[in-house]
Write a protein that binds this DNA or RNA. Structure first.
Lengths: 147, 147
DNA sequence: CTTGACCTTGCCATGATGGGAAGCCCTATC
DNA sequence: GATAGGGCTTCCCATCATGGCAAGGTCAAG
């Protein structure tokens, strides 16, 4: 099977197949006399594994570890599980970051009239020194003593 | 104010300040006789604006638009709001992607014993052909007519 | 004047991916 | 057998935002 067929069969672009080979994620492919890379069903299976892992948000290093465990018949499933759960934690940490951004922005947008006037708490906030939008802060009372 | 001070005051690294200048996000800084960049409070404020926007997950293009609106005194707040809400949508779309990955992985991990045996549904799933773990699909009936 | 901290520019690297060029190979069709 | 079109090869470049490093100029304090 040439690289084009392997690409279609695995869902990994030919470009990425060559890249994975270069990075050692897959062994160097066999070559035909004319230098074309030749793939077996087994190779394609490995590529599919990589694609599935990538779809789950793993990156090269994580995929490398998964592949190592995959081909290690004396592995302990606890190792795989730990890798997976660690990754779930990373994903969830990232989600929390995004949630925080989205919440902040949504709150600001809720305070924005969204009409044809220029006044906008979103820009006002971005242009401000501090970090938070506007806590309770009853805008400047008479005596700034307790500020 | 030299770039170091501006960096500290804005929370943007000197490296990034130069990069933003090169990319046109901020105007070319004034220069001292010896070629050092010189910043005013106003410049620092613009840098802080950029940093805050970046912290909210905007990238250069979005920041560029926000900056344009920021310095456009005839802007309509509706434009700003639209930008903000569009970005909230992008953030939430990304969160949904991550959620889906995490859920899939969590489900697989839940099915994994996590002991010292090698059997592991996580690896088994990654090594599989199809995308989902196991739909109903009663594998190959007698007549593939209707396939 | 020396030292050390700061600034300058320029180049390189990241991670995963795509684009494109120049050139070779294979197959089908005439 | 020649030609056309598509697939393959390698190599280089670009992304986006960021950091690192190196060589050299500048400044302030001692």
């Amino acid at each position: 099977m040439n690289i084009g067929q392997a690409s279609k069969a695995s869902g990994v672009s030919a470009k990425m197949i060559r890249y994975y080979e270069q990075e050692g994620l897959i062994p160097p492919a066999a070559r035909s006399l004319s230098g074309y890379r030749a793939y077996t069903e087994q190779d394609v299976q490995r590529l599919r594994f990589i694609r599935r892992a990538r779809d789950l948000g793993f990156q090269m290093d994580g995929i490398r570890e998964l592949l190592a465990l995959w081909s290690d018949r004396s592995r302990h499933s606890s190792e795989v599980k730990r890798l997976a759960l660690d990754h779930v934690e990373r994903l969830e940490a990232r989600m929390r970051e995004l949630r925080s951004m989205a919440d902040t922005l949504r709150t600001l947008a809720d305070c924005c009239a969204g009409d044809d006037r220029p006044d906008c708490p979103i820009l006002a906030d971005l242009g401000q020194d501090g970090t938070p939008p506007a806590p309770p802060s009853p805008p400047r009372l008479r005596s700034p003593r307790a500020a």
